[in-house]
Every structure is written in structure tokens, then in C-alpha cells.
Amino acid sequence: MSPLSLGTLGRHAKVTALSSDRLTHLRRLEAESIHIIREVAAEFRNPVMLYSIGKDSSVMLHLAMKAFYPSKPPFPLLHVDTTWKFREMIRFRDETARRLGLDLIVHTNQEGVAQGITPFTHGSSAYTNVMKTDALKAALTKYGFDAAFGGARRDEEKSRAKERIFSFRTETHAWDPKNQRPELWRLYNARVKPGESIRVFPLSNWTELDIWQYILAEDIPIVPLYFADYRPVVERDGMLIMVDDDRIPLKPGETPEQKLIRFRTLGCYPLTAAVESPATTLPEIVREMLLARTSERAGRLIDHDDSASMEKKKREGYF
């Protein structure tokens, strides 16, 4: 989101100088997230960090490195691989785990693969259910994780705005929005019975701009797909879809074109729309974002069905 009142740019001469003691909003957000991550490590038996390779995951992982320094984070990373992620994402994922020396668990719904479920053959909704939501639930159950970090933010979507930082899940991984535990101060309730779990969202109070500013300030590595480059794309229903490999069935007369594009959000390549952009540096990306008039998730095809679709997905166990 764009949290600037752009009409008043001329006013910043008057911005009051802050005393050096006072923490800036970014430092306060950072401290809050580190506090949350440490609480999870201290209170849960077997936590895991969901790592989706996107910019939010990069920030979350960076915060985890900070929280336990000079130790390593005392939990593994889990990536639910649908087999349709951009190749550059997978490269970045493996390189990151190697660079930081962290355990990485990659889980794929092999049954779904065997059944030939793809975003092209089964539609985005069924595909997401099987290859993402079901796969995630199966992985959490298989390893017996009692807490799972996710990088979701409250500013992304309306139902997320009401989700707790420690968000309780039943044995079937379901979320009940009307029956959430009260969450006060910094006192998080980490109690679960066997089989139950908590999804933890350390970035709940960050906005998209905060994320980008923090990446800039801390020099956090992100997948190169966020930066503009010439890449092969086809245009479908007004969306630019990158031809990342030859599994995408081209329609008659459709030929991939090289365009200067980048991504504002990353997911499965057939479901993630690119934007045409010349932004090759972080400041350019941030400026572009501030000028943009379309919100982030509009680039994801799964939210379009109706305005309450995310709440439904979340109830069923989607992150």
C-alpha cells in the first residue's frame, strides 16, 4: 500500500527532528517481530518457518537470523513446492539455505503430481487446494510441527486484518475467525494440545512499504524476478504471464514476446502476473509502488473469485 499523502510532499521541511533515543517505526517493527520469533522458539516443542521465497519470507528469515544471533535459528525452513514455481525462485531458495547454513525441508504433494494436477488442467482454485493447501497440511502433520511461521501481513487483505499474531489451528488445520483467542500486550498464548498448532505471523503489523524499506535499509537479498529485465511473456485475459519453461500450453497463434517486466509478488508462474516496468533498483521499485494504483494481491489470480474468498481459503487451512 502507499502510505504517503502525496499532495503534501512540500511539507517535509517541517518534519520534527527525532531524538536519537526514540526508535523509528521500522526499528519498532523489527523489535516486535524478533520478540515474536523468540517467543515461539522458547515456547513450542517443534516449530518450523514456512519459506515461500518471496520478499516477505526474505524479511522474515532475516529477522530470524537477527533474533538468535550468534546462534542459528533453532528451527528448519519448510517450502511447499508445487513444482510450478519460477526456476529462479528455486535457485534462490537453495542458495539461501546453503548460504545461511539452515535446514530446508521441501515438500511436494506427490499424489497431486501423479494425478497430473496443474494450474492449466484443473483451474487455479482446485490446483491451489491440492498442491498448496493440502500439501501444506500434509507436511505439517507429517513432521508434527506445533507452530509454523508465515510471512502474511495484515495490510494485504481484509480477513488478514483481523487475524491474531498467534493464530490457533485445530487438528484439521482449520481457522475459526469467530473464535480467536484474545491477544493482549506482548503476551502470546502458545498452549496447544497434541495435534493442534499455531500459525505465527511475525510480520502482521508491517505494510508493503515497510517491507521494501527494510530490504533497502538492511540490504536483504531477494529473488531477481522483482527487478525489471527482458523476459518472455504471453498476454492472457489482460495479464502478462511469463513463459518460464515449456510446460505452458501455448494457444494457437500465441508466441512469447520479450518484454521489460518484473513481478510485484511471486508464486506459481502460471498464476502470477508480471507488470511492465523499467525499475531495476530498489528505490525505483519503491517509487513505482508508491505511484501504483493497484494493490499487491491483484497480481495473484486466486483472490479474484469474490471479495471474501481469502477468508474461505484461510478457514480451510491456506496460509
Binding site: M1, P3, L4, S5, T8, L9, R11, H12, V15, R154, D155, A161, K162, S204, N205, T207, L209
Partner: peptide, 8 residues
């Protein structure tokens, strides 16, 4: 629900 906005 938590909302976010900012000014200069």
C-alpha cells in the same frame, strides 16, 4: 481489526 496508514 488492525489498519495502517501514514502521513509525512
Amino acid at each position: 481489526a488492525y489498519r495502517f496508514f501514514a502521513t509525512d
